[in-house]
Design a protein around this nucleic acid. Sequence first.
RNA 1: GGAGCUGUAGCUCAGUUGGUUAGAGCGCCUGCCUGUCACGUAGGAGGUCGCGGGUUCGAGCCCCGUCAGCUCCGCCA
Length: 589
Amino acid sequence: MAYRTHFCGALRKEDISTTVQLAGWIHRKRDHGGLIFIDLRDHTGICQLVFKPQHTDVFERIEHVRVESVICITGAVIPRSEDTINHEIPTGEIEVDVHALSIENLAEPMPFPIADETQTSEDLRLKYRFLDLRRERLHSNIIYRSKVIAEIRKYLSALGFNEIQTPILTNSSPEGARDYLVPSRLHPGKFYALPQAPQQFKQLLMVAGFDKYFQIAPCFRDEDARADRSPGEFYQLDMEMSFITQDDLFVVLEGLFDQLTKTLSKKRIWQLPFPRIAYRDAMNRYGSDKPDLRIPLEIQDVTAIFENSGFKVFAQNTAKGRCVKALVLKGKANEPRLFYDKAEDYAKTELGLPGLAYIRYRDGEVQSPIYKFLSDAEKAKLIEALNVQTGDVVFFAAGAWEKTCKAMGTIRNYFGKTYPIDKDLLAYCWIVDFPMFEYNEESKKIDFSHNPFSMPQGGMDALLTKDPLEISAFQYDIVCNGIELSSGAIRNHKPDIMYKAFEIAGYTKEETDARFGHMIRAFQHGAPPHGGIAPGIDRIVMLYRDEHNIREVIAFPMNQKAQDLMTGAPSDVHEKQLRELHIKLDLPK
RNA sequence: GGAGCUGUAGCUCAGUUGGUUAGAGCGCCUGCCUGUCACGUAGGAGGUCGCGGGUUCGAGCCCCGUCAGCUCCGCCA
């Protein structure tokens, strides 16, 4: 005999006078002595059951059953009287008069309430993850995640993408994050690595002629956790396409996110197509390569105004590679003193800035610790250049370009919190034209700034003739509301350009062959132009669910120290297992 | 590796300048209750104040150390 004929959340007044079987968890219980109400919950929702003393056996058996026990019932759907209708729930017009009961599983008292969303300590929630997942918030997040993935598959399959799995046991790559290693039994002393991303495989799939590939790909990186970074493993929508330009890819991704937004959310995309902002502009205007465009503040450059200024702090920062940046806050000149003090304190403690100069253009007076150092001409130029009006306040920072931009970007985000932000606005944008190379201060050499397989803009000609630090790559990020969802690139499919790029980064031909021989070899046997991207699934779900911690969108996450508090992983293994793998432990004391 | 915050009943928390027997709500147990929907109501059980040391006549509270969780920095091609 079947367990159920209906789902709890599906019953309506149309079902009145039918006999139904329901199965689920006791969500809440209200025992009136001569009458017991139970809210029965399943995956679909909640339905009220009524137990009446006329059914003596059933009534007596349910009396001492605790919440979260699993029961199956048979009963009649009956209407509720007008005054007992519950307008808060979809099934509130009816209830089920129970006349048969099967108790499937008695629940011990819960370590924390399931029906209440009471804040509960993180370690307890992780230890009893199977209970936490019953709670409304997590349960709906996981269902939502499933829908996002289903919609992605639907959209990409319709565009001719093929979903292809790539190896989980693969090779260690010294670049990038720390690898998770897996010892080989058949090859003593050798190790597999779990993939940090299927990067090379997806490019090889393009060489193999599959044209368009995607995968909901697990990625493993042994790096420390953050609120938006799961330790150990996370999921990417990994994609790659052949014979495409950067613009072709943008169209596909914009369509995908438009589709996700329309079908799964009441949120709105701010601008479609997404704005495209060059990396350098993003740094100059927003102080970040992942700007939150919803914040109505933009950084301005005032370096030129202070050339030869009498104010030495600014004047010494007008040389090449240095700058003076200004951030105008409209109408914020008359905040309490604490507003400016707290901002300065934040700049000093969090950003390590020596201070945060400001000018308050108040009604009839200007209040500023630096105003007295400025000439009348500089004062006038500032007002003109920044379009300052009475009631505005301007903050300044000066120094090396990148550091100053980033500091101002952090200040911009800090002040951004004082403006109303539309939670349902999705301000997607593309950050484009990332530099191909960067100067590594530590090793005093030129490094790839992102993916070594990206195509330099200008191709071989640029590599041969331009200052490497001036070369841009066809390398882009997709950003939404200040969250970096992914990097991507049009790849370098030409071996000669690849050797040259590696040479600039300090690799000889032999070293390049040794490390990336299989890639070069592939590109020597007919490689199509191709490119791709790999948006983080977890972060997409966080964004659409307004969650600020990645654990809230993962069914079984690990804690900050990469432990699974439910299963106890990582754990000791038997001596025999170690022997088979030819591994001896050398533990720190 | 470093910094910050937190740690008191099963859960969420309060606990005064260091002072008698450490409290509340929820949950749990035993009753009463036929229209609740966070049901109501009476009673009861439940504590290594994270752990260790110190100061003190006396420590949940002060000091030192340590553990755990979270957040951030480093790290994340």
